[in-house]
Each structure stands twice: as structure tokens, then as C-alpha cells.
Amino acid sequence: MNGFEKRANLIKNKIMKTTFNMLRTSGPKRIRIADISKEAKVSQVTIYNYFGSKETLLQEVFKNYANNVIAEFEDYMNGGHSLKEKIEYILFMEKKYYNELSPGLIKELLIDDQELTRYVEEVYKEKTLPLTIRIIGEGKKSGEISEDVSIESVLGFIQLFMNQYELILGMAQQSSDLDKFLDGMVHMFFYGICGKP
């Protein structure tokens, strides 16, 4: 990479980082190229030269964020952790990212952007789902997940949990001990309310 390419990369990354930080406090519809330009200390023309439109910039920012999340997910799943730790990570990975981009903000980004919605569905089908299925299969082989429970049942239970994630996190934040609350949720995921069988 020559000096021009390095400089161009630095400017592009600066624009994307600025946009990401602005997304965390404002919705995508409230962000203007003029605001990004002022905050990033680059001209509006520079932003248009690199990205073409605000929509393309937002797509690239979100895809970059999602790619980083997926890379961390894959690293963790392949990192020699116990099944319980892996399931806990799946259930609560959003806890880490919730303060970066809330589920409501992500929905707002996806609602009017079919390309971004397709991208998210593709990543889920091609990366996240197969890796999760592999982890569940490994748990069944090792006896950590009952043979009586199908992979589809575990996936369904995880999905039920994640569909209510915002509500569960809100309850956890209102509890006197957030970590204890979340540990209890993981315990119930594995053993129900009666403890280990």
C-alpha cells in the first residue's frame, strides 16, 4: 500500500468512525453529511467521493461493525471454551454490543434498507447459524446437551430468549445485582428453575 492509499484509508476510516459515533447518539435519519463533515473535519465532497451517498456510508459503517462482531463471535466459539460458556456468550453477546448500537437503532437502520437486511440475513445463514448448530451438535455428542432435546429445540429456545433481550436486559439493569440476575438466566436456560436433574 503506497502513501496515497494509506492516507485515503485513514480518511475513510475516520469518516466511518465519526459516523458510527454519531449513530450511537442520533438515529440514521437525523444524521446529515454536513454534520459528519464538520465532526470528522473533512469536506462534504470528500465524503461523497469515498461513499457516494449517506445511505452507502451508513451501510458500510454497519457492515464493518457487523463483520467485527461476527469475527469476535467466531474467535470465541473456536477458542476452547466450555459449552456453557459458549451458550452464555451467545445469549449475552448483545449485552456487550447493546451500548454500541441498540437493537432499536439496528431496526431503524434495517427497516428502509433492503440491501442491509439481505446482508444481515446472509451473514446469519452462512456464518452465525452454522457455527451455533455446530456448537449445539458438539454439546449433544459430549453429553452436555440431552439427546432428548433436538438442535431445532435449542435454536428455538435461544431465539425466544434473544427476541426478549431488550426486556430481559432492562429487568437485569433494574435488579440489585446485574451479574447475579444474568447468571440466574443462564442457569435457568440450562437447568430450568428446579436445578440440575
Rank of each mutant, 00 (worst) to 15 (best):
Y48M: 15
Q159N: 12
Y165S: 09
A8K: 14
P130S: 09
Y65V: 07
E152P: 10
E122P: 04
V42D: 05
D112L: 09
Y98F: 08
G184T: 14
P197M: 14
E122I: 00
K140C: 06
R118M: 06
N99W: 09
K107S: 11
V149Y: 10
E55R: 00
I158R: 04
Q164V: 09
F161Y: 04
A172F: 03
R30S: 09
S26D: 07
N67A: 02
T18C: 10
K141I: 12
D75R: 11
L169I: 08
R118L: 03
L129N: 02
T25D: 04
F189C: 01
D177V: 08
F62G: 05
F181M: 13
M22T: 03
S176I: 12
H81E: 12
L109H: 07
S153V: 11
Y76D: 00
A40P: 01
T25L: 08
Q44V: 10
E126D: 11
V123K: 07
D113E: 04
G143H: 08
S26Q: 10
R7H: 12
Y98W: 00
L83W: 00
D177I: 10
C194G: 13
I11F: 12
E152V: 10
Q173S: 03
T56I: 08
K63E: 08
G137Y: 13
T117S: 06
K29T: 06
Q59D: 08
Q174S: 08
F92P: 05
K17C: 14
N13Y: 12
P130W: 09
K96C: 13
E94W: 12
L23E: 03
G3S: 14
G184F: 11
I70L: 10
I145T: 04
G137N: 15
S102G: 04
L101T: 04
R32Q: 13
Y165N: 03
E74Q: 05
I31G: 02
R118V: 01
N99E: 10
I145F: 05
N64T: 07
M185N: 01
F20G: 12
P197Y: 14
E85Q: 06
N68W: 10
N9M: 09
S53V: 06
L182R: 03
I90M: 07
M188L: 01
M171S: 13
I151D: 09
E122V: 00
T18N: 05
G192W: 06
L131G: 01
F73P: 05
P197N: 14
S102C: 07
Y124I: 03
Q173I: 02
N13G: 14
S102K: 11
E126G: 14
P197W: 15
I90C: 01
E85G: 00
I33Q: 07
V149L: 13
E74A: 03
E138D: 05
I135P: 09
K86F: 05
L129V: 01
G27E: 07
G195S: 02
L83H: 06
E121D: 11
L57T: 07
V61M: 05
E108A: 05
K41Q: 11
M22P: 03
M22C: 00
F20Y: 15
G156W: 10
F20A: 15
T18G: 00
E39P: 05
L131V: 07
L109F: 08
P130Q: 07
E126Y: 11
A71G: 08
P103R: 07
K107N: 12
M22I: 05
I90L: 02
I193T: 15
L182H: 03
K95H: 14
I136K: 06
N67C: 04
I36Q: 05
F20S: 15
E88W: 03
Q174I: 03
